[in-house]
């Protein structure tokens, strides 16, 4: 992958960036004219300009003439146009270039933009994040790494399949029994269900996945120490008592370093795209021509 991105375009992008940084002045780059619809919005104009610059850079480094996919595509176009031609691929390709076919073909355009995008996002070694930078990233974006709050609760379940028509009556009786239980354990009360524990710690997402949204809602709004219910699920009726909860938190870098690094690298790629694009944009002289 590293070698894939060593290319003239990358160096070209750096050329403008480097000049801007080290010489502290505007660099005169190519001049281009970008045609946009008369009613194009500012965002559409900027998008068109960005693509035009990237395409121009790709052409400046000859990708439109050297890229093997572009080559084959243009040859195929020519064979379609000249089905009886006995010329070899190279001759057809050169004729396509003479006709400037590569400038207008949507597949060539897409291919060049793809390669340009890859090059823009390439991360050089000196931009790889250090531990200090990862620490800072974790501090700055704790929300991305936050672990959901957990609730510890007691759970009594009455099975619809086992109790059938008696479910409602049994639930009333269970509600009364639990109301007198105080701080006692509900162990042994209710029906077993695979995976159900009399007391467990879980996130609200897990509770929702395991028993449905209704029970998760009840627990989310629960006050500690009070038996609530019955709440219905596809399995039957549930009583729950919130014991305590651990708030959402952000683990330390020592724990989730690889996760933080991957996230920061995604961000660096975005930054590099923008930096390199900005450098190119400032180096270019762009004329906008609005056409009806």
């Amino acid at each position: 992958m590293l070698r894939t991105l060593v290319n003239f375009f990358l160096i070209g992008g750096l050329l403008f960036g480097a000049k801007a940084v080290y010489e502290g002045r505007r660099v005169e780059g190519p001049e281009i004219t970008v045609r946009v619809p008369a009613d194009a919005t500012r965002a559409e104009v900027e998008n068109a300009v960005g693509e035009a610059i990237l395409l121009n850079e790709a052409r400046r480094y000859g990708w439109d003439k050297r890229d093997p996919i572009v080559f084959t595509h243009l040859v195929r176009n020519m064979r379609f146009i000249e089905p009886n031609s006995t010329d070899g691929d190279l001759a057809l390709y050169e004729r396509a270039i003479e006709m400037n076919m590569q400038a207008h073909d949507p597949v060539v355009r897409s291919r060049l933009l793809y390669r340009a995008g890859e090059a823009l996002a390439y991360v050089p070694e000196d931009r790889m994040p250090t531990r200090e930078q990862l620490e800072a990233h974790l501090r700055a974006h704790g929300d991305r790494f936050e672990r959901e709050r957990r609730v510890r609760f007691q759970h009594v379940f009455l099975s619809r399949s086992k109790r059938g028509d008696a479910l409602s009556t049994d639930a009333s009786a269970m509600g009364e029994q639990l109301s007198t239980l105080g701080e006692g354990s509900p162990k042994g009360l209710g029906d077993p269900l695979p995976g159900l524990r009399a007391e467990q710690s879980a996130t609200l997402s897990q509770i929702k996945d395991d028993y449905g949204a209704k029970l998760a809602d009840v627990i989310e709004k629960a006050v500690a120490g009070v038996w609530l219910g019955p709440a219905a699920s596809v399995y039957g009726l549930h009583f729950v008592k919130l014991i305590d909860q651990d708030p959402a938190y952000v683990p330390t870098l020592d724990i989730i370093g690889a996760e933080v690094r991957a996230d920061r690298l995604r961000e660096i790629r975005d930054e590099l795209r923008k930096e390199r694009m900005d450098a190119l944009r400032s180096a270019y002289t762009v004329r906008i021509k609005r056409v009806p």
Binding site: V6, P124, E125, D126, L134, V260
Partner: peptide, 14 residues
Amino acid sequence: LVIAGGCGTDSPAP
């Protein structure tokens, strides 16, 4: 720098 794969400023993820 790119060819050589960098100069080791990167810290491996903990």
